[in-house]
Design a protein around this nucleic acid. Structure first.
Length: 842
DNA sequence: TATGATATCCTTTTT
DNA sequence: GGATATCATA
């Protein structure tokens, strides 16, 4: 393609953003506005204008996005696109780090620790430092360390900071700064970096080695950043450093879709880009090519409620389209039924593929009910889960072998596999090695030699047997290390799988889970094979030096930065997709169902506590809405199971924020805003609930003993009896207050779900009504967590017989009781049930 | 050293 | 509720 052809298919705004590549640019790209097209066209256009591809650095957040862009650029300008430096922040900078590892105290073979390695390491540190494991939880520590690193606060800086110390004392982890310090020390000793290090260490490298900085400043004449609203401080500074001299930075993003602040993303980066680059030109891509006008305008009406935003008005020139349907359900189960029914009707009516529909939810645990319902109606579906292929135990184990071969200082890998598969090396032995390593400042691998020496001096026969086992393990790793040099990558991988004994372990028993484990291992080996073939092809095409054959290091590098999301193929199968709103970003579907639009769920309770949290949650809702091409359906339930309890909920405040002219709903949300505390609403809700409940069992009775009747629309509430309900039935017959009041008896066994639902309803009767009112009514959205509940309010000072004096910091309401989180002066935070705790208000 | 029993956690998660 | 981690125990 030549310049003209590249520009041809663009609209005016897009074209302007492509052509102005010499200046720092901020491209604000609304949802569905052709962002990727602009970014790829801009790069293609630059190259067509004579910019050398190797002078261009393009950064994305996912491998998928990088691959997609590379492919599209190649279609436009052919094979010279290969010389672009394009990839995720993490992969691009891990390569740069590897090339310069020695300068910052690592070797080229450094390992990348994944989250589970991080947590394991933290666990041992907490143990070694003899800290209270109840207060120093690996998850908490890991996220704190991650946040610090993302903000470029090194362990040393952290220790020196008084404000950090104050925060840690408040969080009751005053020793955190020392944990952080020790963690960094051990990572370095293990020659390992975590994900956040890839950014932090890059910054350290660029700061401490001016010649390296100069080299890359020279090389990367043009820098482009995708999804700029999701960059964190570390990434922001890297970009600033690299672009310092020439300032040719182009960032693309949508502030309205910034949804990752909990991972350290700073929306401020995009909001204040013009302050950082005063000469920057701003391009706004406001035309939405994805959705109907109704959807675009409804989404706009929601996002105007945010204060922090860049001015833009998205519009669609497509059809007006259908209104957004809002469905109310009584329970989470009914919600699933309604949603799935609607989905089936819609897809069948239009004779569409199932893959045109997606169901989005705020939290993963909401998928269970939906899944259940889809299974009943025998609709094909797939769940898009965050969990990665590399989370599987068998993969981690195999990877640990590979890691240890490459980097013997990787203690986490060593510990994982030294006795796996079991070779009689007990905990005490491992601890002994660890201790030796700590004493001498060695890696565990190196400490094994000391162990051998020690044993030879003592010549204790029991010890000798143990030491023999350990040396056998060492010999195994050594010989695998030799195999690495004289075999192909795939053969090497196979040899590791075999000689480690992992494969044998899974082959020993013919269980279905073993079969999947073996399949996973095979897949891992296949990826080695593919990698080898790709490298060979590149050598043949002259894109790669002949001596640069595929190495395990290179493969491992790629693999460690890969997630499941990279190797899925959404198009290939005809299935309804279920996923969180977060993972839906960047995707589009003809039919979008957004479920669980309830206070404390969407928006989440935690987010409601801060204004920024609310705004982010609103952006999340905006992202959800703008996934829809033709039709968006939103649902909520009035009660739902949470942590095993039935809990009441009220409609999300976001429902009120959608301009009512785009809505088709049985409930008028604007009316509720006018009348914030409707009196007498709750008892009616209960009555209605009871009526429904009666109806349901009458239906079941009519259906007879077959008890099923799902699949048809006649009995939307039916559920086939399951084997477990005998006990439940007996229980309910004897003990059921509800049966006495209504005279209804149950001819068929109930499920646990029914039973709990019923209990929840019966518990509503009298004394809990007051609690219900504060839960079930429509109040001010922000006031939710501070509103008085029963006798307690957040901020109350209370006295407990055992724990002493404390302050109520959080309240959670449950059907029959409330859960209080109290921060006690002496013992810290405790969760108590108000019913039992016998708290005295001070 | 494996296994069953008990404690503990519980938004979201591109790398 | 449920998945996972840790623990006790033989």
């Amino acid at each position: 393609m030549n310049e003209q052809e590249i520009l041809q298919s663009l609209n005016d705004a897009q074209r302007a953003a492509v052509v102005g590549f010499e200046k720092p640019s901020l491209i604000i790209a609304g949802a569905g506005s052709g962002k990727t097209r602009v970014l790829t066209s801009r790069i293609a256009y630059m190259i067509a204008q004579g910019v050398k591809p190797w002078n261009i650095l393009a950064l994305t957040f996912t491998n998928k996005a990088a691959a997609e862009m590379r492919e599209r650029i190649e279609q436009m300008i052919g094979s010279s696109s290969r010389y672009l430096r394009m990839g995720t922040f993490h992969s691009v900078f891990s390569r740069i780090l590897r090339e310069n590892a020695e300068r910052i105290g690592y070797t080229q073979a450094f390992t990348i620790y994944e989250p589970s390695d991080v947590k394991n390491l933290l666990k041992t540190i907490v143990k070694d430092m003899r800290l209270d494991a109840d207060k120093y939880k690996p998850n908490v520590l890991a996220s704190r360390i991650s946040m610090a690193k993302n903000a470029l606060i090194t362990a040393g800086a952290y220790q020196a900071s008084t404000s950090c110390a104050v925060e840690d004392r408040q969080a009751r982890i005053p020793e955190f700064c020392n944990v952080y310090h020790e963690y960094c020390r051990r990572c370095k000793q293990n020659n390992a970096m975590d994900f956040d290090d890839l950014l932090l260490q890059t910054n350290i490298l660029l700061k401490d080695c001016p010649e390296v900085l100069a080299q890359y400043q020279e090389q990367f004449q043009y820098i482009l950043v995708d999804e700029y609203q999701d960059t964190n401080y570390a990434q922001y500074i890297i970009i600033r450093r690299l672009s310092q001299l020439h300032g040719r930075v182009c960032v693309v993003g949508d502030d309205a879709q910034s949804i990752y602040s909990f991972r350290g993303a700073k929306i401020e980066n995009i909001l204040s880009f013009r302050n950082d680059y005063p000469t920057a030109e701003v391009f706004k891509l406001e035309q939405n090519y994805r959705s109907t006008r109704t959807i675009v305008e409804a989404a706009n009406s929601v996002i105007t409620h945010n204060r922090k935003k860049l001015q833009k008005v998205c519009f669609s020139q497509g059809a007006v389209g259908e209104k957004i349907r809002i469905m109310r359900a009584y329970t989470d189960r009914e919600e699933a039924e309604l949603v799935v029914s609607d989905l089936i009707d819609r897809v069948r009516e239009a004779d569409d593929r199932w893959s045109e529909a997606v169901i989005l939810y705020r939290t993963n645990n909401q998928s269970a009910v939906l899944e259940d319902q889809l299974r009943r109606r025998t609709i094909p579906y797939r769940i898009y889960k965050g969990s990665s292929f590399y989370d599987h135990k068998e993969i981690k184990d195999l990877m640990a072998y590979l890691r240890l071969v490459i980097n013997p200082r990787d203690d986490e890998a060593f510990k994982r596999i030294v006795n796996y598969p079991a070779r009689g090396i007990g905990d005490t032995t491992i601890q002994r090695i660890e201790q030796l390593a700590a004493e001498r400042g060695l890696s565990m691998w190196a400490a094994v030699d000391r162990l051998v020496e020690e044993q030879e001096a003592k010549n204790d026969p029991v010890q000798r047997a143990i030491v023999r086992k350990v040396t056998e393990f060492v010999a195994l790793i050594r010989s695998l290390s030799l195999a690495r040099t004289d075999k192909s990558l795939y053969e090497f991988g196979l040899e590791v799988a075999n000689r480690s004994g992992i494969l044998a372990l899974y082959r020993a028993e013919n269980l279905p889970e073993n079969a999947t484990a073996i399949a996973n291992i095979e897949e891992l080996l296949n990826s080695m094979q593919e990698f080898t073939e790709r490298c060979d092809a590149e050598i043949r095409n002259g894109e790669r030096e002949p001596e640069e054959v595929a190495t395990i290091e290179e493969w491992l590098q790629g693999v460690m930065l890969m997630t499941d999301a990279d190797n899925d193929d959404p198009e290939d199968n005809n299935k309804v997709t279920l996923m969180t709103v977060h993972s839906a970003k960047g995707l589009e579907y003809k039919y979008v169902y957004i479920v669980g639009l309830e206070e404390n769920l969407f928006p989440s309770q935690r987010a409601m506590e801060t204004p920024d949290g609310m705004e982010e949650e609103r952006r999340l809702f905006y992202v959800a809405l703008t996934r829809a091409k033709e039709r968006a359906v939103i649902s909520y339930a009035e009660m739902r199971f949470k942590w095993g309890n039935m809990e009441f909920s009220r409609p999300s405040c976001f429902l009120r924020e959608i301009d009512s002219r785009y809505i088709d709903s049985e409930v008028d949300f604007t009316a509720q805003r006018v009348r914030p505390e409707p009196e007498g609403e709750e008892p009616r809700a209960i009555d209605e609930l009871r009526r429904r409940f009666d109806y349901r069992f009458q239906q079941q009775r009519q259906q007879g003993a077959s008890g099923g009747g799902f699949g048809g629309s006649a009995n939307r509430f039916g559920r086939p009896a399951d084997g477990e309900s005998n006990r439940a039935q007996r229980f309910s017959r004897q003990n059921d207050p509800y049966r006495n009041t209504s005279g209804t008896s149950y001819p068929h066994p109930k499920t646990q779900y029914d039973e709990r639902l019923e209990r929840a309803i019966s518990s509503l009767g009298n004394e809990q009504r007051r609690t219900l009112r504060s839960v079930g009514s429509v109040g001010s959205p922000a006031g939710a967590s501070t509103a008085p509940v029963g006798d307690f309010t957040v901020g109350d000072r209370v006295d407990h017989a055992l724990f002493g004096v404390g302050e109520v910091v959080r309240i959670e309401r449950m059907a029959g009781d409330m859960k209080l989180v109290v921060d006690f002066q002496k013992v810290g935070q405790k969760t108590l049930l108000a019913k039992f705790a016998k708290l005295r208000k001070l």
